[in-house]
Design a protein around this nucleic acid. Structure first.
Length: 832
RNA sequence: GCUGGAGUGGCGGAACUGGCAGACGCACCAGACUCAAAAUCUGGCGCUCCAAAAGAGCGUGGGGGUUCGACUCCCCCCUCCAGCACCA
């Protein structure tokens, strides 16, 4: 044997194959009628400058799957692109005086190099970047369609405003209620006219269609359900005493309405001013309400002290005819329901607390269905459960469920109320007072009002010559060539909309565009979408569980209703991987616990880095980074490399063989058995739960066995084992395995080979080790061939000297035998 | 508070359908090789009792239950993580 040390030079190996893999035509996905398709998609990154470990983990999972499915003979679409509009580019422009486009392009170029260094098998011919006109023109196209359908509309809405910058702030620019650049300046709220998408008209569909998403993680579905927040109830009108107006409240507990001892409205409620206007002392009430609004914290929570102001007016309970006071309180939200509630202290905890503070009476109208009756004078908290109605006129005695039904019907008959369903989900505000985004394709004309830009004038190009200061109004207002235009309708002078779209619009439908990113007739190529959709597997971070994934599902429904696609759900399966943690915290620049993928590639290579992200934890769980753990994977890689390099020369000209018969040695059989057990394990994992950590562990066991049996295995079996091992490892470590495949004398690409088939005969153990228990405690083990009867196994167990000795003097009550698995002897605890 | 998830050696984790708890890796200990060290190879490694071995007992957050048998199923409780949160 040669003494030359064959050391694993990851740098040389990876760079060599990288050169060969550039622009690989066989990673290109073309629809083929005769082949099953598989669309595996990882969430596209924002080109922030560098990939981080969370990205690497995400893409290592997706690439392993893509490679496996190709080896299984599927036609795989595995694309990648750039979510390239967004705020960081503008921040960089302010800080470093570099144009956002330039900054973005540079980052994309660098990160694409990182992708290539990691050897991810993307079809780069499908690459798209959302900041290019070829992409964002279709955002504009879709916006116009939605405008036609009434799904896009304009209304007043609040924005964050920094009085020092004199500009609108994005939510992520608000830090602890202050401007990110003026940390002591509180952010103000300002009303602006903005564009909205009517996602609420799909609220029920978004909820209903979750039934189709059986393969989505439960927690994602739960978060979305929560976010949509459907409540079924009723709206009831309370007539204002001595006025024509009525206040409409929303409640899910109309059965408690006889217990309403006040009506409470939000401080912004439109009736407030009117009700107070002609009252004596009205001005002082209004100023107290203004004060209430001003003192209200940015985010309300259960701990916020409840504060209210009595309006001095009364409303009439339409069921009981009682007069109840009208209050304004800080805990009633204008955005939810009708902005007004009935206050039932006895049966709502918030109302109870409010009543204690302002001495509003507690009137008990629901008693527990069983157990002692409640006494309102002794209650320390509201009774919020369903029960039986009391003190409720004709409805007394009814159980809550029935009362809700009957009382809602009653309201509808009498015309003072009706059933209503409300949602927490609000319409999606898409206007951003920013430069680096898709221009909203609308023109404002003094004569014609809001005029959509005609389709044939798309795209409305985002101009490049812009000063970005972060101060003052939207940058596009300062670009006269952009701002000033002619009205498409009357040809008179007009101004363009200078707001741009939320970048979540860009990422809500990009996965359709991947199927044919050069299509010029429409946003999506219906034929290509028909072939490739749905996405068979979508993979990304849990942080996108709500916004991105709800918006995407909304767009899928809109696109379907526009006749562009077939299905209202984009992804059949979703997988959310865990975060990458170091020293107990998510990796971040500010925490200083970043591990740079480039450093890892330089030190250990892409294969080791990829494999470590798969090995350190099951993919859905958080991964605690450990430098020592990376060393462990590197050791495994070099160990395998050394073994193959050592034996490859000897195996030249040897044909692989998996024949295991009478003449095969015990060692050959042992190795083949382990090999096929490993095939079974990894294959079923790829088809099921993706616990790649245990797959890599299984491959380590196989390599350990190779070393154990070194020199004792016949060359054909050794070749068979090494070749199969290389294939099994190839989805996780493409460079290493391609190199080893080469060393074993092959030239073809591993991706063109098929996945190794599993042989149950070879995997079967010659002899089974069967535990023998006494009263469920392990006492001995039997070596037995497979297929022995229960009686034979019991006889063998009783014959074991150790067992026989322990049974002496005890009565055997019964024996339990699981064939090929276990024997349990149940004995009486006491001696006879 | 509501919703979802998790709790296993010194650490990351394994045990897929109720059937040998701790695979694999890290750390640690020992041996081989070496002048020596590193690297590499081999072996050991849950805890307690015992000088050690043999052996016994304990052990999957806590308490109870079902079962011949429970990390796994049921009931109660504790802790941690995540999302939402005066949502009427």
């Amino acid at each position: 044997m040669t003494t030359a040390t064959t050391s694993y030079d990851h740098k040389a190996i990876e760079e060599k194959w990288q050169r060969q893999w550039q622009n690989r035509p066989d990673w290109r996905a073309v629809p083929r009628a005769d082949q099953a398709k598989y669309y595996v998609l990882e969430m596209l990154p924002y080109p922030s400058g560098r990939l981080h470990m969370g990205h690497i983990r995400n893409y290592s999972i997706g690439d392993a799957l893509a490679r496996y499915k190709r080896m299984r003979g599927m036609n795989v679409l595995h694309p990648m692109g750039w979510d390239s509009y967004g705020l960081p580019a503008e921040n960089a422009a302010i800080k470093n005086a570099v144009h956002p486009r330039r900054w973005t392009h540079d980052n994309i170029a660098y990160m694409k190099g990182q992708f290539e260094r990691f050897g991810f098998s993307y079809d780069w011919s499908k690459e798209l970047s959302t900041c290019e006109p070829e992409y964002y023109r279709w955002n504009q196209w879709l916006f116009l369609k939605m405008l036609e359908k009434g799904l896009a509309y304009r209304k007043n809405s609040r924005v964050n405003w920094c009085p020092k910058c004199q500009t609108v702030l994005a939510n992520e620019q608000v830090v602890d209620g202050c401007c990110w650049r003026h940390e002591t300046t509180p952010v103000e709220q300002k009303e602006l006219e903005q564009w909205f998408f009517r996602i609420t008209s799909y609220a029920d569909a978004l909820l209903e269609d979750m039934n189709q998403l059986e393969s989505w993680p439960e927690r994602v579905l739960a978060m979305q359900r929560n976010w949509i927040g459907k409540s079924v109830g009723a709206r009831i009108d309370f007539q204002v005493s001595g006025a024509d107006d009525s206040i409409t409240i929303f409640t899910t507990r109309v059965d408690t309405i006889y217990g309403a001892t006040a009506v409470v409205v939000a401080p912004e409620h439109p009736l407030v001013g009117k009700l107070v206007a002609d009252m004596p002392g009205g001005q002082s009430i209004l100023s107290r309400i203004r004060d209430l609004i001003a003192r209200r914290p940015v985010a309300l929570s259960g701990e916020t002290e409840k504060e209210g102001v009595f309006l001095g007016r009364f409303a009439i309970n339409p069921y009981s005819g009682d007069q109840v006071p009208i209050w304004v309180a800080n805990f009633v939200l204008m955005e939810y329901g009708t902005g007004a509630i009935m206050s039932v202290p006895a049966h709502d905890q918030r109302d109870f607390e409010f009543s204690q503070k302002y001495r509003i009476p507690v009137r008990l109208v629901v008693q527990p269905a069983r157990g002692a009756a409640l006494d309102p004078r002794r209650m320390e908290a509201a009774f919020v459960e369903y029960g039986v109605l009391a003190n409720s006129g004709p409805f007394s005695g009814l159980p809550s469920e029935e009362a809700i039904r009957k009382m809602t019907e009653h309201a509808a008959e009498k015309g003072f109320g009706k059933p209503e369903t409300t949602y927490r989900l609000k319409d999606w505000g898409i206007s951003r007072q920013r430069y680096w985004g898709t221009p909203i394709p609308v023109v404002y004309c003094k004569k014609c009002g809001i005029v959509p830009v005609p389709y044939e004038q798309l795209p409305v190009l985002l101009p490049d010559n812009v000063q970005i200061t972060g101060l003052g109004h939207s940058p596009l207002r300062d670009v006269p060539e952009f701002l000033n235009t002619t009205c498409p309708r009357c040809k008179g002078p007009a101004e363009r909309e200078t707001d741009t779209m939320d970048t979540f619009v860009d990422s809500s439908w990009y996965f359709y565009r991947y199927t044919n990113p050069d299509f010029t007739q429409a946003p999506v190529d219906a034929a290509a979408v028909k072939y490739w959709f749905p996405i068979d597997q979508y993979i990304g971070g849990i942080e996108h569980a709500i916004l991105h994934l709800i918006y995407s599902r909304f767009f899928a429904k809109v696109l379907r209703d526009l006749g562009l696609t077939q299905s209202g759900e984009p992804a059949a399966r979703l997988f959310t991987q865990g975060m990458v943690i170091k020293e107990g915290a998510k990796m971040s620049k500010s925490k200083g616990n970043l591990v740079d993928p480039d450093d890892m590639v330089a030190r250990y290579g892409a294969d080791t880095t990829r494999m470590y992200t798969l090995f350190a934890a099951p993919p859905e769980k958080d991964l605690e980074w450990s430098d020592a753990g990376v060393e462990g994977i590197y050791r495994f890689v070099t160990r395998l490399f050394r073994f193959v390099s050592r034996y490859a020369p000897e195996l030249k000209g040897v044909a692989p063989s998996a024949a295991a018969g009478e003449q095969t040695s015990a060692e050959d059989r042992k190795l083949l058995r382990k090999l096929h057990q490993t095939i079974r394990r990894i294959t079923s994992d790829f088809e099921g739960r993706w616990h790649f950590n245990t797959d890599i562990a299984a491959l380590m066991e196989l390599v350990n066995l190779l070393y154990n049996l070194e020199g004792q295995v016949s060359p054909p079996v050794l070749r068979e084992t090494l070749e199969t091992l290389v294939k099994l490892l190839s989805p996780f470590a493409p460079y290493l395995t391609q190199e080893l495949w080469n060393e074993l004398g092959h030239t073809e690409d591993l991706l063109h080979l098929s996945w190794p088939p599993f042989d149950p005969v070879l995997a079967k153990e010659d002899e089974l080790e069967i535990p023998v228990q006494i009263n469920g405690r392990l006492r001995s083990k039997l070596l037995a061939r497979e297929g022995l009867t229960q009686e034979e196994l019991v006889e063998m167990a009783l014959g074991e000297p150790r067992i026989a000795q322990m049974l002496r003097g005890h009565e055997v009550l019964k024996t339990i035998v699981v064939p090929n698995k276990l024997v349990n002897i149940v004995i009486a605890q006491h001696t006879r």
